[in-house]
Design a binder for these strands. Sequence first.
DNA 1: GTGAAAGCGCTAACAT
DNA 2: ATGTTAGCGCTTTCAC
Lengths: 344, 344
Amino acid sequence: MKKKLSIKDIAEQLNVSKTTVSFVLNGKASENGVSQAMQRKVLSYIEKVGYRPNKMAQGLRTGKSKTIGMMVEDISDTFFSTIARKFEEILTTKGYKIIYGSTENNTDVTKELIRVFRNHQVDGYIIAPPPGIEEDIKALIEDGVPVIIFDRPLTELDVDSVLVDNYRGAYKATQHLLANGYKNIVMVTLLSEQTQMRERERGYRQCVEEAGGKPAILKIRYHEKKEKAIADIEQYLKNNRKTDAVFFATNYLAENGLEAIANCKLAIADRIGVVVFDDSNWFRLFKPSITAISQPIEAICTEVTNLLMERLEQKKEIAPKAIVLPTNMIIRNSSVPVKKAGRT
Amino acid sequence: MKKKLSIKDIAEQLNVSKTTVSFVLNGKASENGVSQAMQRKVLSYIEKVGYRPNKMAQGLRTGKSKTIGMMVEDISDTFFSTIARKFEEILTTKGYKIIYGSTENNTDVTKELIRVFRNHQVDGYIIAPPPGIEEDIKALIEDGVPVIIFDRPLTELDVDSVLVDNYRGAYKATQHLLANGYKNIVMVTLLSEQTQMRERERGYRQCVEEAGGKPAILKIRYHEKKEKAIADIEQYLKNNRKTDAVFFATNYLAENGLEAIANCKLAIADRIGVVVFDDSNWFRLFKPSITAISQPIEAICTEVTNLLMERLEQKKEIAPKAIVLPTNMIIRNSSVPVKKAGRT
DNA sequence: GTGAAAGCGCTAACAT
DNA sequence: ATGTTAGCGCTTTCAC
């Protein structure tokens, strides 16, 4: 077991003081008048023996852990894991590591996560917040800790945030279905308080009402048995024969909804139009391929990390920014009746 | 900005020593003869003011960070993100947090990740190793750090590992296709040194050869342009008209391969059978639904964490264990000609 | 230009 | 039964 060496060992080997070593390690050598020769000597020795400073000691001393806490609803969700990857990519270049936690969109779980992250002295937080977490986040901010929220708004709280225009995304999706001749569109959404879902619902409602129609909304409880969700959607479809299009508020709902539609033997596109909020790699492979509202994941990540780095490096007070990004509609075949367009 | 309190503050407020507080905090109160009354007093005060010990200081002192380093090829891959979630679930109950890193299946990236994780003093490693990383992992183990590898074997190295029987999984998949009347099966796999891929290839070869056939293997470079992968597969299909079944070695390849098949206008199941290694939530929704070899994710995670906890709590030397889990074939419609079975 | 030393918050051996 | 104290490895002020 090769003994881990400390700055003290290095200093002793080199017959200099810990201070000198520390200075060159932190790039403060020149400004503190350490000779070039000395710097080279230290650097090359460190390189040779593969010394790397102990982050815990550094952290204890400086109060900085060089780690960021990321909290999302569920890290196994493709949307969030793709984002996690992107964050990793960007933050690694800045010398940060990420520790993650899944909130399950549950306030208490999130509170506990925040506590744990605090104990770990994370330098900043990236959070897709559940409802009811305002107070805790406010406390964080008041303590001067950088917090960036994304994906879900936290109204009533002045905090850096990066959101997507859920309202317009849903509006456009609905409008697109209407434009393609579908008249009775049902929106299948989650029975939950997630603010971004409410925005999507609002966009749908607004659009339908403007067109003189009557909104129809089916709410499904999240992560109850898959079979239950499928059965509920199937039931709705059977009881509402006039329904000729479905707008799924999330990928997860589409997964079950598409099965329900199959069970009802309704031909997608011709008999029933389909649009899903959030894209999936697989959608283009369906027959017919599935139209989706996609979120600008790259942009979300760069905006979030930019805000975060700004806060981490901030010298003076800066006012929180709220960034809203547009969604992108990817029109495929599930929302275009065959008589109007070729099928893939 | 509410000042963070330390154990010293607590001790002063309570008029006791830091030791006493520390003992009750660490459940060593009784064994060190701290009175029940005292324990309750400390506990309730701590609860009241919401004190929580600073992990960095604890870590520096004890040499334990209570964090685990997880390295996988790509955290945004569904397989790995699902696993990340499960690890989180289990390790949280044990008081550990996870920091993650994506290796891109690249040796140098992984080496650097290991260095960074070491600096962060992670208490243990969970690694899906890239090729050529044996030496570094060996060094870790010799330093007494718990390392569990999974997903990919590291031959020549005696280390705790949890793997899936890739050979048998591929063998069974091939056998299943043969049994359903497909005669010319091509395996589409990655042009890479990943050991688990070689095992899958071996399973396929063995089965085809036993049946007196001639193996046909198409290798695709990972993560080159999607279009290139699609074109390559399409090309193969066009040049080999006799091919009547495809066995995709991973989900990622299936994503492109299914598009190639669609482009060639080959009817899945009837004209061309399809089986994919690794399942996806979406496969049951395809028409026809896609047959897949699924990995026992739950089992992998519990085995890995069990091994890890064993190491973390180990008193005496224990010999490394190699655990191999069976895969599960989920027969859907893409591998069963219609004349033999009903379509969904 | 370089070094000594204090101290970040905690644990645990040792004293009392 | 409770308190004193010496570090863990590092940064940084201040003294030489």
